[in-house]
Design a protein around this nucleic acid. Sequence first.
DNA 1: TATTTGACCAATAAACGAATTTGGTCAATT
DNA 2: AATTGACCAAATTCGTTTATTGGTCAAATA
Lengths: 202, 202
Amino acid sequence: MATAAPKTPSPEIRSQIVASATKFFSRFGFHKTTMEEIARNIHKAKGLIYYYFRSKEELFNEVLRAELQAVKDELLVIVRSPDDAIHKITEYIRTRYELLNRAVNYHETLKADFFEKYHFVKDVRDDFDAFEQEQLTRIIREGSEDGYLQLRSIEPTVNVAMMIIKSIDIPLFLQDKYAEYEQTIVELLTMITRSFQNQRKE
Amino acid sequence: MATAAPKTPSPEIRSQIVASATKFFSRFGFHKTTMEEIARNIHKAKGLIYYYFRSKEELFNEVLRAELQAVKDELLVIVRSPDDAIHKITEYIRTRYELLNRAVNYHETLKADFFEKYHFVKDVRDDFDAFEQEQLTRIIREGSEDGYLQLRSIEPTVNVAMMIIKSIDIPLFLQDKYAEYEQTIVELLTMITRSFQNQRKE
DNA sequence: TATTTGACCAATAAACGAATTTGGTCAATT
DNA sequence: AATTGACCAAATTCGTTTATTGGTCAAATA
């Protein structure tokens, strides 16, 4: 969805723009960043950005997409590792919070939810949610098939996990409670591990 | 902390004021409610309110305190019931969400957290948090002593529970996801129950 | 032809001051 | 002791002006 304006003429310039935009969006946010300064920073005219991107919103989308793609990539390493499901799940959640804690553009869209703005960013966020749902389902299903986890059904478990994980995002990233909650999250992971171990077959 | 101005002259008038204030605060929120309309509603002069309350903030505090006290009272019925710990915990959480979902003045202070305002309401909110911490600890400890629950230690369990419960408050009450999450919360409670049952002694 | 520019415009936001509202006080009244 | 209503300072709202900014495009460049 939402591809660039023409056929991406010069990839170098395009990525220069994205790099510059990332720098400013990350530091000042969407509204306090101007297209003018994004362009000036790479010694180009503002009009040029519109040769590569349809709008400021599309450019922000690109930045956000890249930010979340980096998180996805790192999480996939964990999901695809040969470890057991319990280890994967705890590592996934722990790493997820650690990485997202630094994803400031994602934070901004989280906050925007409260003002019911930033509709233009919905696709990227939905995509990330779908990714997470998929990965958690995969981990839990595999652990279940290996007989490592014993669950009555997978879907409700994933739903609950998603609800909790996403809910905690808000105090964590919008209210800066990462430091405060970090230890409790570790305790939560320990509890999950123990809970699964007690339910393990054999 | 923060008692009324004189020695509460006429309790009837005082509670009329609180009732009127509750009505307006609940419908229009703290800022869009004026002292004038609170007074006019009970056919009194605005100045009279200041004979019973120091300030608008103190009056709001009173309203919020009453709102949360009602929730506490209902929750205490559950905590003090003769049921087992698992039943108590699931009922506690389910009822808690149901009651708080209607506590609109509490919602407003929740939202205020994001704007770092409403400092004057901190005491009442902290009190409610302490209440919850206490009740959960009690339920879990009793369940633990009865051998009904088997936990390595109580404190981290309560911490995790509090973190999760309070985190979910935000999407639930500020983003109006109560309807959306209601079923998932039921699933969560089922999972908790099952988890405890699997760990039960004997 | 493929890029890049910069002047230009409409729309949004910021700045500003005037007018209004509102929280809070208090001397007078009941 | 309880209640009022006029009064004030501070905050908020409102309307207007000014400045900024997202976006366009014809012309220039390479």
